[in-house]
């Protein structure tokens, strides 16, 4: 320990400039620092050949020449190579593919009517700065098994500063028959920092759907963040087996207060209000769906 200590003291006490001191002490007779000495004795330097054409540099034309010497040309020149070989040699690739996995919601919920459920919302992507493959999933699992869940696979292409096009497919599963859709949408950052997704879906038998999702981060501190979020689903056709009525089918509004222990790990508490529209309780054998529901949630947000 004492050896380390003495090394460190030596290190931090400027062992470095001892020689410099000796060197600069011998220069004591040089002009003082407030008097820049004319510096015109550049025997070996090459004065600029066009110094006479001093042009508009009136203020500086009277300055002594500098000591710049152009370098000689390189002796060796690198062989030609492809951009990828070049990237490998430079160890610099500004278009390399990376991936991210975000579990935005992984939560346990309890509705005011006493129903317990586990819900998730997650997305992952992989790709370069412009083109990426996205996977998104969202769903809920209660006493009766998986209800209302979806999985989407999308190709995403950077479109403007803040918006990406997305094109792909969606599969709905859970209660009732599974549904398949083609998806086209935009995802990005709206003015005022609203994270926003709007996706249009085209399904079998002429089904259509539109999904809008937007959220906002309101910071109480750098780590305590309140996120209001609104989800809105519009359908072109009734799908009573899945509890869906045409038109504005449901609206979900949520508030989640998370604490970011780190950017990548944040537990939260929150509340959701769900409002379903239309007459959807008529199907026999379907779980009871409440037109209005308030759910309390506790969960965790994680990304990698």
């Amino acid at each position: 320990m004492s050896r380390v200590l003495s090394c460190w003291i030596a290190a931090c006490l400027g062992a470095l400039p001892v020689a410099a001191l000796a060197q600069s002490m011998s220069m004591q007779d040089m002009p003082g620092m407030s008097m820049p000495a004319p510096h015109d004795d550049h025997g070996s330097t090459t004065p600029p050949d066009d110094a006479q054409h001093a042009g508009h540099d009136m203020a500086v034309s009277a300055l002594p020449p500098n000591d710049h010497v152009p370098p000689s040309p390189p002796q060796t020149v690198l062989h030609a190579m492809s951009p990828s070989q070049m990237n490998a040699m430079m160890q610099m690739d500004d278009n390399e593919s990376i991936g991210m996995l975000l579990v935005d919601r992984l939560e346990r919920s309890r509705s005011t009517s006493g129903d317990m459920a586990t819900s998730w919302e997650a997305e992952g992507w992989y790709g370069n700065a412009i083109d990426r493959l996205w996977l998104k999933t969202e769903g809920e699992r209660g006493n009766e098994g998986t209800q209302d869940a979806r999985l989407e696979a999308l190709w995403s292409h950077a479109w403007t500063s803040f918006w990406d096009w997305q094109l792909g497919a969606r599969q709905d599963f859970g209660q009732g028959p599974n549904r398949q859709w083609l998806a086209v949408g935009v995802e990005g950052l709206a003015p005022y920092w609203f994270e926003t997704q709007t996706t249009f879906y085209l399904g079998e038998q002429g089904r259509t759907a539109l999904r809008l999702e937007t959220s906002y981060d309101l910071r109480f501190t750098q780590k305590l963040i309140l996120t209001p979020k609104v989800d809105l689903n519009v359908y072109g056709k009734d799908d009573p087996q899945r509890g869906i009525s045409s038109g504005l089918s449901n609206v979900e509004a949520g508030l989640r207060l998370r604490y970011e222990f780190s950017r990548k790990f944040a537990p939260y508490l929150g509340v959701d209000w769900t409002r379903r529209f239309g007459d959807i309780d008529s199907m026999p054998g379907m779980p009871l769906v409440h037109a209005n529901e308030t759910t309390w949630v506790a969960g965790v947000r994680i990304w990698l």
Binding site: P48, H53, L63, P64, N66, H68
Partner: peptide, 9 residues
């Protein structure tokens, strides 16, 4: 700078 530019041109 205390000296002239490399080229005024």
């Amino acid at each position: 700078a205390v000296d002239a530019p490399i080229s005024p041109q």
